[in-house]
Amino acid sequence: MRFFASLRMTSEGFRVTLRVRFLASLGMTFSCNCFSKIGVINHKKGVGILAKSDVELKPSNTSIDNLKKWAKQLRLDVLMMLNKAKSGHTGGSLSAADIVTALYFYKMRHNPKDPKWADRDRFVLSKGHAAPIQYAALARCGYFSPKELFTLRKLGSILQGHPDMKCTPGIEVCTGSLGQGLSMANGMALALRLDKRPSRVYALLGDGEVEEGQVWEAAMSAAHYKLDNLCAFVDFNGFQIDGAVTDVMNIEPLSEKWKAFGWHVIMIDGHNMGQIIRALDDAETIKSQPTMIIARTVKGKGVSIFEGKYQYHGVPPSDEELKKSFDELGVSADGWPEKVLQ
């Protein structure tokens, strides 16, 4: 069992964070954040939108079970919105679902009512093609109505094919062209440090993405500037569009690479919620070094028909596949999508 308390001064006053963690060797991790002021997301937001997947969601309840329920909700949202959009990236959105859930519903200090809150933590989805999972998280946090999810990729939508800060509340930069997000995250971390803000910056990279040279330029500069307010993930699902990463362009040994570039590296199972939140908490204690969490994941995780299949990298679920997904996730498809859109 671990107790964890911190006191941070923010522009709005003091914030006390108190965490009690019963650690995960027993698979029981419980964590609770008590905030004295704003920045707390209302976890009630969005509840009841999908009839059969309704889960009991208590404000500030960031228990592992609850986070898992959120992850399931986000996965459903992704599948539904991609089916509606008739294009988009299924596999990489699902593999990142648990990480994105942990960030938005557990770790990050953010305020959907005030997306530009100066002391917020920032998240950069460098693997921008996984935008659907971020959109689902933003909608369920209350940045915009979940109804918007069904406008994904449509003309005039606030939800562009890839993340766009100009269109979507809660999106921090424009990504989608692989390899560029980490540099932007570095820039944010530098600026926030200059301004002496308590904010942290999180970035999520794809495993195929680290084949981009700019990632390693950014890896170098983050370590050079000792950006300990930066924590990045690699969603290591093993596949890129053309096939297995090991076949297309081997990136191993990956952890050794990041270590050699001067990063603190944590290896986790990217679908084990306990491991994800522990890694996020540990990253916050690291000084003078950025942290890289290499998360082993399964492409298409959550629904068996998509799992481990690179063919679903950029292919949305068909109506039939969506129905199978509903069945597998134990959700009634009755009245979809009208019920959902209500």
Partner: peptide, 20 residues
């Protein structure tokens, strides 16, 4: 930023995104 123009432009974007 060293000899890394791509990273320099991205970092500049991040700095601007925070108001610099």
């Amino acid at each position: 930023m060293g000899v890394s123009e791509a990273d320099m432009m991205g970092t500049a974007a991040g700095l601007a995104a925070v108001g610099k």
